[in-house]
Write a protein that binds this DNA or RNA. Structure first.
Lengths: 107, 107
DNA sequence: TATAAGAGCAAGTGTTTGCTTGCACAAGTT
DNA sequence: AACTTGTGCAAGCAAACACTTGCTCTTATA
């Protein structure tokens, strides 16, 4: 099977999720990201490559640094897949919610 | 690295996502699931095992059949992780939404 | 200009994954 | 009792993954 380079596969790895968390608020350069982890810079570099390939991240050259910026809207693909199933697990919570709201009115 | 058996990893595989889609509405037995795919029954059986191990699926023995039932509430783990980033990619859409609503009023 | 810092590329390794084929075995059916 | 059906278990395999070390190259800086 050829390399799947989709968002689902990208966020399957905990290190990559941590990277996303790290660059979500502001763009960060490669080495700064790598310093936060125990693994080698090259390992992180590969994770960044994977994230970039699936569109979750974009790189900008800035002098000798490469700045990584998160493209969080790509997560919407996952969000939409999940959404179609939300009704199934939210049913019970919804019922509780309605009950509580109703209870409130009766007071 | 030991086998990660979490929801993120489980839904990374397209076949497993398809299985979830198949059993979401109603429980189905193993062979019926396997028939829907091109791969062997054993391959599907392994996917089911992975889904079961991470809690996305539960098995019930029923005579000689094993019924697979989806535990979609487990997807909430993924949903919550995604949710923390929604604000980042929804900002622009929200702005557009407000603009359109405002435009509507001005008509 | 010499040196340090940021970062890609390549080769090599051990583990995991996705899949297959073959065998076993228990629960229904004839 | 013999046969069919549903399913698991195990061995084996190729590709992918996560990492490492070593080297190179370019851009700053002392």
């Amino acid at each position: 099977m050829g390399a799947r380079r989709d968002v689902f596969q990208a966020i399957a790895d905990p290190t990559r999720r941590a990277i996303i968390g790290m660059i979500a608020k502001e763009p960060v350069n490669v080495n700064t990201i790598a310093e936060q982890f125990d693994v080698s810079r090259q390992a992180i570099s590969l994770h960044l490559k994977i994230l970039a390939e699936c569109g979750l991240l974009s790189m900008k050259q800035q002098g000798r640094e490469r700045i990584c910026e998160a493209k969080l809207e790509k997560l919407n693909e996952v969000n939409e897949w999940i959404s179609q199933y939300k009704q199934f697990w939210n049913t019970k919570l919804d019922a509780l919610d309605k009950f509580l709201k109703n209870n409130e009115k009766l007071k």
